[in-house]
Amino acid sequence: MTRFRPCIDLHAGQVKQIVGGTLDSSTAELKTNYVSQHSAGHFARLYRDNGLEGAHVIMLGPGNDDAATEALAAWPGHLQVGGGISDQNAAAWMERGASKVIITSFLFPGGKFSQERLDAVLAALGGQKDRLVIDLSCRRRGDSRWFVAMNKWQTITDMEVNQESIKSLEPYCSEFLIHAADNEGLQKGIDERLVESLARWCRIPVTYAGGGRDLDDLELVKRLSRGALDLTIGSALDCFGGTGVGFDDCVAWNARQGG
């Protein structure tokens, strides 16, 4: 059943909501919707107190380790963490309290998918795929093609997100996290065609993010995916400075779904 899933996006050690397509190394080009005065731990406790499982903590670039560690310590065993995860540090993040680690860029050296690297990450996690989330955040090419984007969604890889690639990756992970990077942070609505496609292709849990702006989008994802996909709403939430939807309303929506 479709659920609202929250997030904690970290940039330069602060909780922020950023327009995903502008997230490169140039601060002059970075478009930020909101910078919170609250710590990452504050939001982790907020999600804990409202029973919101499956939240993801994403480290967007360097300087976020301490903030992410603070969030995990506030609700150990219940938050997923991603951003800069590799075979060298995956186990360490689990030890810090992550429920799962999320991996993207490490799997695509030079923009090309590496099965060897995926195997190495899984081995570092003791072969337990229930600890691994593969992030297939993507950018659209044409009307109905999407390619995985890495390096803060700036580099397009050689992997098309389609039924074949989804099927090949499902045996190695417990779920997917998929941002529609072209919609991220814009509050202009979800990528409906991508949501419909993911619902057809995926047989394991999927969280979609990008463009969510109100409760109607939760209902839309529920309808388009027949309850198969969860939705993350970020910039539109009042707790992140948005006006589209109240955090408490999303909590209540989840309760009405029975989850």
Rank of each mutant, 00 (worst) to 15 (best):
L118D: 06
I18T: 13
G244R: 00
I103T: 15
A236C: 05
H42I: 00
R256Y: 03
N183V: 06
P76Q: 13
S105D: 01
S144C: 03
G84P: 13
G97N: 02
I18E: 07
Y172I: 11
S174H: 13
I204V: 13
E170K: 00
L186W: 06
C7H: 03
L229I: 15
L79E: 05
G189K: 06
W93I: 06
E29K: 10
F247S: 04
I18K: 08
C250M: 04
V35W: 06
N183S: 06
V19C: 07
D9Y: 10
Q88H: 11
D191P: 12
G127N: 15
V35R: 15
P76I: 02
E53L: 14
I102T: 10
L30K: 07
D182S: 07
V195M: 08
A68P: 12
V161M: 05
I166F: 03
G110K: 04
G84T: 02
R5Q: 10
C239L: 14
F4L: 02
L215I: 00
A252Q: 14
G54M: 14
N50E: 00
S225F: 03
G210Y: 08
H179R: 08
I18R: 11
E170Y: 11
D216K: 00
T157W: 00
N50A: 02
R193G: 12
I103D: 04
M150I: 09
L118M: 04
G211R: 02
G258A: 05
G82D: 03
S99K: 14
V161R: 12
L60G: 04
G185A: 05
K112H: 09
V19Y: 05
R193V: 14
G189M: 08
A12L: 04
F240S: 02
A73C: 05
D143W: 05
V121P: 11
A74F: 09
Y34F: 15
A120H: 06
H11I: 00
D87A: 14
R145N: 00
I233P: 03
L198R: 13
L220A: 06
P6D: 04
A252N: 10
A71H: 11
D66K: 15
L229A: 03
A12E: 12
A124M: 00
F147I: 09
T157G: 07
V195P: 03
Y34C: 01
E29D: 10
V245H: 01
A44Y: 01
T243P: 05
Q37T: 15
N89K: 15
R145V: 02
E175F: 11
Q128E: 15
D248A: 15
I102Q: 10
L198E: 06
A92D: 14
F4P: 12
L30A: 02
D66W: 01
L23G: 06
G212N: 04
N254F: 03
T207D: 02
Q17I: 08
V221I: 06
F106V: 09
Y172W: 14
S105C: 12
Q115K: 09
S225D: 10
L198W: 08
